[in-house]
């Protein structure tokens, strides 16, 4: 009975995640696309709940929905005109790309179904124990990757600023002239 319920939960969560995800990439209005991400991210949180990863459910909702999605919406509203809703979203290779990706999807689904999975070997423990274990891992075994991820985010931040910061060519040339005349 529980396995049955688990299957029902899995299938409905899958629908909740994938259908909005398709809408995110296919809708022509960027703000709508942003809003479609909401059910998609909630669906992912549901998967974590199904896997009894309690801490990740909270993190998923707090960070992804509470912070990142809101940030994306802000960014979209500030740059609303960047995309023309009438612009074509596919090109001549679209069909072939679809065929190749579809075949890849079928192949990997086939492979994943046929794989002799070991299954869960130990129960993940209650929310408190999981969080303690996660915290310990982040300062021991995963200290280096964790710090590297922070540096990665820093690099991405700097990179984004360097790429997106408004340029002031006239101001720059004035500065140069000023230096020359000053010297």
């Amino acid at each position: 009975m529980t396995a049955h319920l688990g299957t029902i939960a899995f299938v409905s969560l899958t629908a909740l995640t994938i259908l909005p995800a398709i809408m995110v990439v296919s809708t022509r209005n960027l703000v709508h696309a942003g809003f479609w991400m909401l059910p998609c991210l909630i669906g992912v949180a549901g998967f974590y709940a199904l896997l009894e990863a309690h801490f990740f459910v909270v993190v998923q909702i707090l960070i992804y929905i509470g912070a990142i999605l809101v940030l994306i919406m802000f960014a979209l509203m500030l740059t609303r005109d960047v995309m023309d809703p009438k612009e074509r979203q596919t090109n001549a290779m679209g069909v072939w790309a679809g065929v190749i990706c579809g075949l890849g999807l079928l192949a990997s689904a086939h492979m994943l179904f046929r794989h002799p999975w070991v299954g869960v070997t130990s129960h993940p423990g209650d929310a408190h124990a999981q969080t303690v274990a996660l915290g310990k891992a982040l300062v021991t075994r995963y200290a280096l990757p964790f710090e590297a991820a922070s540096v990665l985010l820093l690099a991405a931040l700097i990179a984004a600023i360097v790429i997106a910061k408004s340029m002031r060519p006239p101001a720059a040339s004035v500065g140069c002239d000023g230096e020359v005349s000053g010297g």
Binding site: L144, P145, A148, A149, V151, L152, A155, A156, I158, A159, V162, I163
Partner: peptide
């Protein structure tokens, strides 16, 4: 995982330098 993070950290920098 560490290999992947290193690869990404390296690549992020290279993408930006290419568009400098």
């Amino acid at each position: 995982i560490v290999l992947f993070l290193g690869l990404e950290l390296m690549s992020f920098g290279l993408y930006v330098l290419a568009g400098f």
